[in-house]
Write a protein that binds this DNA or RNA. Structure first.
Length: 280
DNA sequence: CAATTTACCCTTTGCACGAC
DNA sequence: GTCGTGCAAAGGGTAAATTG
């Protein structure tokens, strides 16, 4: 009798001889209940194999106790460790997680956000794939959806963000290399070819020390900026020929491009990469 | 036949009432 | 006044029933 269709609060209430309200108060842990009824209800629930219906609960409370996460690529070790942390905190607070990949493509990110919003998540954690325009994220805020950005920011979007100071970190790392005696330090960056013109302009400005709006730069550009600033601080020239554009953050992309630099005349004595996966 | 209304899904919660 | 309990409504969307 207990197995056919799933037991509801009504079934438990009937078996325990109480109202659905009382059964609900025991099972949901809200309101007042006597020890006696509590025992009866729990016993009946156990016997019937009752499992709360989160859909119905969410319908009336307006909460799902579920968070949505849009990661770039969960196979990337960076996202894996970020997700691990999110998962730990969510679980400790009684929240579930819905995780999607954007593959760093905004179209997929928009699709993911829409899907998670339809699933009625209570909040979203997103690594925005485009730091300059993100209408869908602005819309989320306008509709009151709690939103936290990871790793990157979006121009004009006032929300909390968890990120590292990429510029300072890169600057620190490169100065460390300089202090160790290196004078020609190569940099392998994710930078794609189609951004080539913008990058050249960016490089030129950074090298002469123009103030740069660095908040909305991609992390790899921020690290490049840190690399350049370290040179400026230490009074070393930046040789553009030492800047390699891998086009992606994969180890394979780095492997394909680094030998060209190392076999050229006057090769670098140290290498700095803008992404952890490339240094493998 | 299309258009509109009703009935449900399952749980939580406001309200009323009785007991202490 | 506080606690314990039950009734009934509500919540968003849709399938089913009813209306014109």
């Amino acid at each position: 009798m207990a197995s056919k269709s799933k037991a509801t609060i009504t079934d438990v209430a009937r078996a325990a001889g109480v109202s659905t309200a009382t059964a609900g108060r025991v099972l949901g842990g809200y309101g007042y209940t006597s020890e006696e009824k509590k025992e009866q209800v729990l016993k009946a629930a156990q016997h019937l194999g009752y499992r709360p219906n989160a859909l119905a609960r969410g319908l009336i409370t307006g909460k799902t106790r579920t968070l949505g996460v849009v990661a770039g690529d969960i196979q990337n070790p960076f996202y894996a460790s970020v997700l691990r942390g999110i998962s730990n905190v969510a679980e400790a607070n009684g929240f579930g997680l819905l995780i999607t990949n954007s593959d760093e493509a905004q179209q997929k990110e928009v699709h993911s956000v829409e899907l998670l919003a339809q699933k009625q998540v209570d909040g979203l954690i997103v690594t925005p794939s485009d730091t300059r325009k993100a209408r869908h994220l602005h819309n989320l805020r306008a509709m009151g959806m709690p939103l936290v950005l990871i790793d990157r920011t979006v121009a004009g979007l006032q929300v909390d963000r968890v990120a590292t100071d990429n510029i300072a970190a890169a600057e620190h790392a490169v100065r460390h290399l300089i202090a160790a005696g290196h004078r020609r330090i190569g940099i392998v960056a994710e930078l794609a070819d189609e951004e080539s013109a913008r990058l050249d302009m960016f490089l030129a400005r950074a090298v002469v020390g123009d103030p740069i709006e660095s908040e909305t730069l991609y992390p790899s550009w921020q690290r490049l900026l840190g690399y350049i600033r370290a040179h400026r601080i230490e009074g070393l020239p930046v040789d553009p020929r030492l800047t390699l554009r891998a086009g992606s953050y994969s180890a394979a992309a780095a492997q394909a491009i680094v030998p060209r630099l190392m076999t050229a005349p006057d090769p670098p004595t140290a290498l700095f990469t803008t992404d952890g996966t490339m240094s493998e």
